[in-house]
């Protein structure tokens, strides 16, 4: 299915933001000492990975 250009751009922007968030949660977790915060960041990294996969599925459909 084809998407409108502005939709693709919107999803692209969300994907870029999510990629940044994933990088931060993944790298900063090593510096955190509080176990609960650490666990929440690990959970966020996991969820963000799944979300980026969903977004890139949309983007790859849009590029055809």
């Amino acid at each position: 299915m084809a998407y409108a250009l502005h939709e693709t751009l919107e999803v692209h922007e969300i994907a870029a933001f999510k990629a940044l968030c994933l990088t931060k949660s993944k790298t900063m977790r090593a510096l955190v000492s509080d176990p609960e915060l650490k666990q929440l960041m690990a959970m966020d990294a996991e969820i963000s990975t799944r979300q980026i996969q969903e977004l890139s599925a949309i983007l790859s459909k849009a590029s055809h």
């Binding site: 409108a4 919107e10 922007e13 969300i14 999510k18 900063m28």
Partner: peptide
């Protein structure tokens, strides 16, 4: 930093949703 990112994520997604029709 984590909280600010979460907040920003909610806002960005809400904005994107209002611009999307598919």
């Amino acid at each position: 930093d984590f909280l600010i990112r979460a907040k920003e994520g909610v806002r960005n997604l809400a904005f994107a949703l209002t611009e999307t029709a598919s």
